[in-house]
Amino acid sequence: MIDKILLGHNQFFGVNHLSAQGGNERAAYFSETGRIMDMIHFSYDLGVKAMMMSTHERALLISEELQKDAKLKNDYGVYLLVPYAAKYIRQANEKGLVNIVKDALAGTSLQDKLGMFWRGGVGLLRKDVSKLITAMVDFEVAPFAPLNLRAIFLHDVMTDLILGWDVPEVFAIYARHIEDKYGAIPAFCSKNMPRLVDALERVGIENPFIMASINKIGYQVNPSLEAFENCLRTKNVRLLAMSTLAAGFIKPQEAYDYLYSLPNVASTVVGVSKKNHAEETFGIINKHTEGANGKATKAGLTEAVGV
């Protein structure tokens, strides 16, 4: 099951694609975890029972709160995004890529086994490559494993790097592992959706679940809005739409009228930091998805607005 609306997480951690300054201000407001939980509860009461979560250091605090929360712990869905790229980019500046991998594997059985590869001279066997990738995934997912993980998304930095290097077998290794070990939907975030769908097809991943930016002005849509729309129309794909408001450039009504004119939109992630904004946005989306979403959401919305 894929939730129709996911609460976004960027605003909690100071990510604002339109304005760095605005992002910093919101991060200051949400620096108290209580305020984040308040927004999660508020959205839950409006029928939004799932959120996107990166493996940001501060997401751990939210993860702990969710596990303690009597109301949320059983049925609140989490769509995890791994790895938290910004952290690795910082670390890569300091210690280099190889040391990042080494540190991630410290204490695992792979550490000794791969010893000879660090020193070089020996090619890696394919099954070792596979183990290396899955061990890196486990390292990232582990702290969040107790949550109700509905899907685990590979971060666009990784997805798109794999696309560029053209090694789609890595997607297959990832997908199999996410299904087998976590029972979650293997999913991918990308800035290059049409290209990704083709690459996944090549390794036998059908009807993939993909998070990508889509909005009527084509902001962060590659290679072009036309190619993206065409991909949605002609391929079997489940889209999790992000950047639907083009970083605040488009008004919600106009943005969602456009989004739901497209086929294969499975879900949308909404980054709200104000309650009135949340109500308005969820209301507009629910109107578009009512048929597919059933009555529960509508009832939940009415009730919450009534309160």
Partner: peptide
């Protein structure tokens, strides 16, 4: 002029157009 209106898609986007 804000970045969303200036944005133009690229053939492949890794780390920014």
């Amino acid at each position: 002029f804000r970045i969303p209106e200036l944005f133009k898609g690229v053939e492949i986007d890794l780390g920014g157009p």
